[in-house]
Amino acid sequence: MGFRKTSALAAAGAVAVLAAGTATTASAAPMTSDTVAATCHASSGNLYCGNRVNAAIYKSPRYDTASGNPIEIVDTLRSGFSYFKCYTIGQPHGGGNSIWYRTYGDDVGAWGYVPAVDVWTPQDPFPGVNFC
């Protein structure tokens, strides 16, 4: 599953609000995939959505090569709400489909792919997101 937003500014604001709420309120209700999905949206072909914190970003839209060698992990999504440039079709994953979203990481800014199972969209591909 995956999520989308309408603008980078909105995404940054949502992350700031979420971070402020969780950092300052110990009794705040935990975010669930349903809560985050409600904030997922597409704008100008891009997706802004919640995602699994510390999700790996792969060099290609797959976990391994045809020979079984692992695909390089190029970066990590550290935040729980991210920007995704587009989607593509890759290797099947635990989300029950083969959709992968292209994004850049939080550690070194490397571009790569995240399986849709790590993006909290209500459907994949998310409507309005460009195909890579």
Rank of each mutant, 00 (worst) to 15 (best):
G13Q: 14
C86I: 05
Y113N: 00
A66R: 15
F126S: 01
V53S: 06
V15N: 13
A23C: 05
I89W: 13
T39E: 07
S44I: 07
G94L: 06
F81K: 11
V17D: 15
L47Y: 11
Q91K: 10
S82M: 11
R102A: 09
V108C: 00
K5A: 06
V117L: 04
Y58R: 11
I73F: 05
V17Q: 12
S44Q: 10
M1S: 10
G90W: 04
A42W: 01
R4F: 12
C49A: 07
Y58G: 01
M31Y: 15
P30K: 06
T65L: 04
A19K: 12
N69I: 06
G68M: 10
N54D: 13
P125L: 00
G128Y: 00
K59C: 01
K85V: 08
N54C: 07
P127F: 00
N46R: 15
D64H: 15
A23D: 11
P125C: 04
L77C: 09
C40V: 07
G95M: 01
L47N: 06
A19N: 12
Y101H: 08
A29M: 05
A11E: 14
M1F: 10
P122E: 02
A19W: 09
L9M: 08
V129W: 00
G2D: 07
G90F: 04
A110W: 02
F84L: 05
P127W: 00
C132A: 04
T121I: 03
S79C: 05
L77F: 09
A20Q: 14
C132Y: 00
L9S: 13
Y104A: 03
F3L: 03
T76Q: 13
V129G: 00
N97E: 06
A29K: 14
P127Q: 01
D64N: 14
A28F: 09
I99M: 02
